[in-house]
């Protein structure tokens, strides 16, 4: 009995070994695979770094603080074509409109898909439909949008002249751009909701709470980091889109308001964003002021980098908050 109960004798004390395995002992094919992995990893780092560094160097050469606060103007030289204040405002406005539409719709859709999923048949159809929207090229969305917003019924959203609806305005572009952000918000929110274990929902039901109260007080606050992540990724996609801007916002040099109401006139009017500004000032665009294009691209890249950094911070913080075991 006692021999059975006693633990095996302790081995003579040896120095602690690190749990590092040397690839030197691997098969040659495995070692080649490892080398390819290293190569690809370094390659992608190099590509990302060269984009950022190149744009930084080119951008810093041409970017001036004054560019950010002066209106663009039609001109042939660098000195008389002005800055890109209007396009900066345009970028912010389309992002705001897009998020204002996509965030409530996206979160509501995700809650419905994840928490209710009924009627079942509709939910089964809605999922691939959202994925289809996500997969639609934005130029197709833009054409579709111009069809919708040129209809007389929606004439109040854009410029109308002699019964012809132009169908180009911040409203039109923002609405179509929200479709680009929507799938990202739905997907991310849904993922957040589904990562909450079932017993947490039941714990709320088990103290007499309704489904609505549980969603509002427990589930959505828990999924907030994922909602934020989806939103910021969506904003990144919105401000990076060009085709919808060119077709539905007009890509005019300055903000051209319609009507006399202060804010509404801007929203009903045309304008441009940093992306369309870069396009038009690139060597293939009408403006052809490459230095302005570099400066605007630099600002655009900075905004996107800041957004990506914010996503990283939010996801890290969410991961650090200890969760439940399922």
């Amino acid at each position: 009995m006692s021999a059975l109960a006693a633990p095996p004798p302790a081995p003579p004390s040896a120095p602690l070994r690190d749990a590092v395995e040397s690839s030197g002992s691997w098969r040659i094919t495995d070692r080649i695979g490892l080398a390819i992995c290293w190569f690809l990893g370094l390659l992608f780092c190099a590509i990302a770094a060269s984009i950022v560094i190149f744009m930084l160097i080119e951008g810093i050469k041409y970017v001036r603080p004054s560019l950010l606060v002066t209106h663009p103007a039609a001109g042939f030289g660098e000195s008389d074509s002005g800055g890109f204040l209007d396009t900066l405002i345009g970028t912010v406005v389309v992002a705001l409109i897009g998020v204002a539409i996509a965030l409530p719709l996206g979160v509501a859709t995700a809650v419905w898909l994840s928490e209710y999923g009924r009627p079942y048949a509709l939910a089964r159809v809605a999922e691939p439909a959202i994925e289809m929207i996500a997969g639609t090229p934005s130029i197709v969305l833009a054409l579709f949008g111009s069809l919708i917003f040129s209809s007389p019924a929606l004439g109040f959203l854009s410029r109308t002249s002699g019964g012809v609806v132009f169908g180009r305005s911040f409203f039109a572009a923002g609405a179509m751009l929200s479709l680009i952000a929507l799938p990202l918000i739905v997907g991310s929110t849904r993922e957040g909701l589904q990562s909450i274990p079932a017993h947490v929902r039941e714990a709320s039901y088990a103290v007499g709470k309704t489904k609505a109260a549980t969603i509002r007080r427990i589930l959505l606050p828990t999924a907030r980091p994922q909602v934020l992540t989806g939103t910021m990724l969506g904003v990144g996609r919105i401000i990076g889109d060009t085709s919808i801007i060119v077709i539905l916002l007009g890509a005019t040099l300055t903000l051209n308001g319609v009507g006399g109401v202060p804010l509404l006139s801007v929203l009903r009017g045309t304008g441009s964003t940093l992306t369309s500004y870069v396009y038009q000032n690139s060597p293939s665009g009408e403006g052809n002021q490459p230095t302005k294009a570099y400066a605007a691209a630099f600002v655009l890249l900075l905004i996107v980098l800041v957004l990506n950094g914010a996503v990283e911070v939010v996801t890290r913080r969410a991961r650090r908050r200890t969760g439940w075991s399922s």
Binding site: H199, S204, V207, G208, K209, P221, T222, W324, S325
Partner: peptide
């Protein structure tokens, strides 16, 4: 909901809600 307030339940996994200690009970 009124039945579940009279017959409450504790689960296998500890599952406090992601809020403060006070708010968990106040909820």
């Amino acid at each position: 909901t009124s039945l579940r307030r009279r017959v409450t339940m504790v689960f296998q996994q500890p599952n406090p809600f992601p809020m403060s200690v006070f708010d968990n009970v106040a909820y």
